[in-house]
C-alpha cells in the first residue's frame, strides 16, 4: 500500500473554530477524529484531503453526561470510553454491550462515536442501535445549532445530511419513563457485520408491549425501520411472539437487503427473521433499564 498523501493537521480549540476551518478548506478539508475509517479510505486513495481538522483538541467534546433525563454522549467519546462509562452501563446497558463488540479492541480505543456516525459506513453498529433508541444528533455549524433524528443524519452509504461546515457535537438519548427492554444483536463472520438488529420494547406493567422499535442495519446502505413491522411488534406478548415472522418480513421489505460480500439479499432476509426472534427473547430476559 502507498503511504498516505501529504496533508496538514489543524487543531481546533472550539466547535466554532472547527466549523470556520471546514468552511475555509471546502472540498480540500475534512473533519478528523479517531481516523479509524477516514485514514483507511485515504490510504486506499479513495479520498484525498490536504487539510484535516482535528476536533479531539476541543475540550469537553468527549463528555458523557446525564442532563434533564437525557444521556448526552459527546461526539469524540471513544467506543472504549462509552463501553466503560458507569453512567451508560447503568442506564443503557445495551449501548455498553453494543460498544463492547464494535470492530476490535484497537479500533475501540481510538475510534469515536461521532466519527463512526459521520463516516456513515453502512455496517455501523451504533447507527443501528441509536436509531432504535430514538437518539438525536446535536449539530453545530456557522449558521447555528440544530437537532436531527438519526435517520436524518445518516442519509445513505458514506453520506450524511450535514452541511460542509457542520459538526456533530453530541448524541442525545432520552431516558424512558416507562420500563423499556432493549437488545442489539449482530451476525458477523468477516471484519464487518452481515446484519445488526436492534429492538427496543416499551412495556406496561403486565405482559403488554406498548410500543416497539426495530431497526436492521448492515444489510443495506443505511439502518432501516418499518412502521408496519413495529405495529406488529406491539400488543400482548403472546400475540406479538406469533407475529414475529410477519414483523420480520415487513422489516426485510423495508430494508430491501443488497447482495454483497457479507451475503446474498435472500440470506440476509432470512437472517432478519432469525435475529428478530433472538432479539425479542434477549430483550425480554434483560433486567429493566432504559435500554
Amino acid at each position: 500500500m502507498m503511504p498516505l498523501r501529504r496533508f496538514r493537521i489543524h487543531q481546533a480549540r472550539e466547535i466554532k473554530e472547527a466549523a470556520e476551518m471546514l468552511a475555509q478548506f471546502g472540498d480540500k478539508g475534512r473533519l478528523y477524529a479517531g481516523g479509524t475509517e477516514l485514514l483507511l479510505a485515504m490510504k486506499h486513495d479513495l479520498l484525498r484531503y490536504e487539510h484535516l481538522v482535528d476536533v479531539k483538541t476541543i475540550p469537553g467534546l468527549d463528555k458523557i453526561e446525564l442532563k434533564n433525563s437525557t444521556l448526552h454522549i459527546g461526539s469524540t467519546a471513544t467506543h472504549r470510553s462509552i463501553e466503560n462509562s458507569p453512567l451508560i452501563r447503568e442506564h443503557f446497558p445495551v449501548i455498553a454491550e453494543m460498544e463492547r463488540h464494535v470492530a476490535n479492541v484497537r479500533v475501540r480505543a481510538t475510534g469515536t462515536l461521532g466519527g463512526n456516525l459521520c463516516f456513515a459506513e453502512p455496517h455501523s453498529d451504533p447507527a443501528t442501535l441509536l436509531l432504535a433508541l430514538r437518539a438525536k444528533a446535536r449539530v453545530q455549524g456557522s449558521k447555528g445549532e440544530r437537532t436531527l433524528e438519526m435517520d436524518e443524519l445518516v442519509a445513505g452509504a458514506y453520506e450524511t445530511s450535514l452541511a460542509a461546515d457542520e459538526i456533530l457535537t453530541a448524541v442525545a438519548i432520552p431516558l424512558s419513563a416507562k420500563p423499556r427492554r432493549a437488545a442489539y444483536l449482530k451476525f458477523q463472520i468477516h471484519e464487518r457485520p452481515t446484519l445488526g438488529l436492534a429492538l427496543v420494547l416499551e412495556l406496561d406493567d403486565g405482559q403488554n408491549i406498548k410500543a416497539a422499535r426495530a431497526v436492521v442495519g448492515s444489510v443495506s446502505p443505511k439502518p432501516c425501520r418499518s412502521d408496519k413491522a413495529e405495529a406488529l411488534l406491539a400488543g400482548p406478548r403472546d400475540k406479538v411472539e406469533k407475529q414475529l415472522p410477519h414483523a420480520a418480513k415487513a422489516l426485510a421489505e423495508a430494508a430491501d437487503p443488497v447482495d454483497d460480500l457479507e451475503g446474498s439479499a435472500e440470506y440476509k432476509r432470512h437472517l432478519i427473521g432469525v435475529f428478530l426472534r433472538r432479539a425479542f427473547d434477549r430483550a425480554l430476559q434483560r433486567p429493566t433499564a432504559h435500554g
Binding site: 500500500m1 483507511l40 490510504k43 476490535n104 484497537r106 479500533v107 480505543a109 481510538t110 471484519e191
Partner: peptide
C-alpha cells in the same frame, strides 16, 4: 494496514492501537 490483523499493535498510554 487496515486495522484488522493486529500485527502492528503497540500501546499508547497503556491502550492497544494499530
Amino acid at each position: 494496514e487496515v486495522q484488522v490483523c493486529g500485527a502492528c499493535t503497540v500501546l499508547v498510554d497503556g491502550l492497544p492501537v494499530s
